[in-house]
């Protein structure tokens, strides 16, 4: 398979995730969609790593290291984000973004 196929899948996945972020109203679902977007980036990175072969014939592992870090950061982010959602739910009794609109003029 060619790089472009993987990049297309990655891009579509990102687009689907972004759509979710844009249209869904439930904060937790929005969070899941964010995870989808992060994984789209991961896919692109891994396919570039496979595409760019080092002189010794092996894939470029630097890209994979970055994926590794992204997974770690995403885990931390989910933990903190969900904690914030819990705190928010305690304060406002809702997880609907349309109702969390205090920051306006």
């Amino acid at each position: 398979m060619s790089l472009n196929d993987y990049l297309l899948v990655s891009g579509l996945l990102f687009a689907i995730g972004f759509t979710g972020v844009l249209v869904r109203r439930n904060l937790i679902v929005i969070y899941m969609c964010l995870e989808l977007m992060l994984n789209a980036a991961n896919l692109a990175l891994v396919s570039f790593s496979r595409f760019r072969v080092a002189p010794d014939g092996m894939p470029d592992y630097h890209g994979q290291i970055l994926v590794f870090f992204i997974i770690t950061v995403a885990a931390a982010e989910v933990a903190v984000g969900l904690a914030i959602i819990v705190a928010l739910y305690r304060a406002r009794q809702t997880t609907q973004v349309t109702e969390i609109n205090r920051m306006q003029y």
């Binding site: 398979m1 060619s2 790089l3 472009n4 990049l7 891009g11 687009a15 972004f18 595409f51 072969v53």
Partner: peptide, 24 residues
């Protein structure tokens, strides 16, 4: 946003010649 994004993605990938070859 989705259509704009996907459209531009297609366009970019079309112009990205090295990506069309198979993986080594």
């Amino acid at each position: 946003v989705i259509f704009g994004f996907s459209g531009s993605l297609f366009k970019i990938l079309q112009g990205f010649a090295p990506g069309k070859s198979l993986f080594p």
